[in-house]
Each structure stands twice: as structure tokens, then as C-alpha cells.
Amino acid sequence: MAAVNATAASGPVWDPIVRVTHWATALAITVNGLITEGGSTLHLWVGYSALALLVLRLLWGVIGPEEARFSSFPPSVAGAIAHVRDLAAGRHRSHPSHNPAGSLMVYALWATLGLTVATGVFLQTEPFPVSPAAASSAEERHGWAVEPLDRDERDDEDETVELVEEIHELAANLLLILAALHVAGVAVESRLSGRNLVRAMIDGAPTGRSGE
């Protein structure tokens, strides 16, 4: 109980699963969104890693410690608005988990990541694990990069594939925008509340007021 009270007073102490999945997902989104070529082997591996990270984090949302569970940060638009208003007015309340605005962002990020990964998996015609190296060399030979040229023979599925690819790209771009907003939100929250939220996510230390 004392531990719970302590975290409530000074912000959450993030456990290693939350921290590892957070930073690895951030890395995966950055790498796949900005660096790797869509459809390349690296893109697929990074994408599947992101899926595994999402699965692990969602599992952790059910079986993890108190502050990592979905039940400690239910999505609430009204709560988020109230939180932002409080913050703007200079009032700050500590939350045992994500703050209400942050948790809305968390759910938005997960939903968008889920959509991106699901469409990405669908776009991969070869079931991924069979032989990524062979698949990628085939892709390179056929010049399959952004456009799925090797799917031309399957005309009936062509439209679906194009639609899914469209959704994949839209979701990926939305994901990058949300990630940027998330970073901005963390910066604003950290500045206004005087607590270093980034440090809490890096080393899992409780976020004491920086004035201490």
C-alpha cells in the first residue's frame, strides 16, 4: 500500500516491460515510417517486431502491474479535456498511470499501430515466415517495392490489395503524426508539471518535481 501511495504522489514508476515495449515500438515506427523501403525484408521484420511488441504490451495491459493495466487508464475524452484545462490553468494532479490526455493518445497510437500492422500483414502475400530471404530476393527481381506488381495475375484481388495498401499507408502516416503529437504532448506536460516524464520512461524512476 505504501508503494502505491508513493507512486500516486509522484507519478507512475514504469516497469521494464512498459519501458522496453515503449522504446522498441518508437524505434520500429521511426525505422519503418521514415527509413526502410515498404515491402523490403527489413521492413517486414521491423513490422512483425512491432506486432509482437503490441501483442506483448496488450497482454501486459491485462496481467501487468497496476499502473500498466488498461483499468488504470480508461479512455475518457471528458477526463482528457479536464486534464488539459487543469494543466493550462497551472493546476497539476498526479496520476497513478498515464494522465487522461496521455491515455487517449496511448489508445489512439495502439489502434493506429494495430491497423498499420494488420494491413501490413495482409499485404504480405507470401505467409511471412516461409522464407523471408527468398521472398525478398523474388521481390527485388520483380521490382516489387511500393506497388505490388507481382500480384497483377490475380485481378480479382487487385482492387482489395490496392485498397489495403492505401489504408496501410494512411494508417502509417497517421501513426507518425500521432507520434509527433505524443512527443509534443509529453514535452508540454513535462514543462507545465515540472516532472520529467521522459526520464521516468527511460530509467523507471519516480518522477519527482524537478524543483526538488
Binding site: 516491460i17 506486432l51 511488441l53
Partner: peptide, 20 residues
């Protein structure tokens, strides 16, 4: 935590393989 992630990754990999 990293090991648990690796395990999850392998699970996703194998389940994907089986479904495929």
C-alpha cells in the same frame, strides 16, 4: 523484459506461420 519480447516475437512468428 527483452527476453519476454523475444519470446513474444517468436510466438507471433510461429502463429503467423501456422495460420499461413
Amino acid at each position: 523484459a527483452a527476453l519476454l519480447f523475444l519470446q513474444t516475437f517468436c510466438t507471433v512468428f510461429f502463429i503467423g506461420d501456422v495460420v499461413g
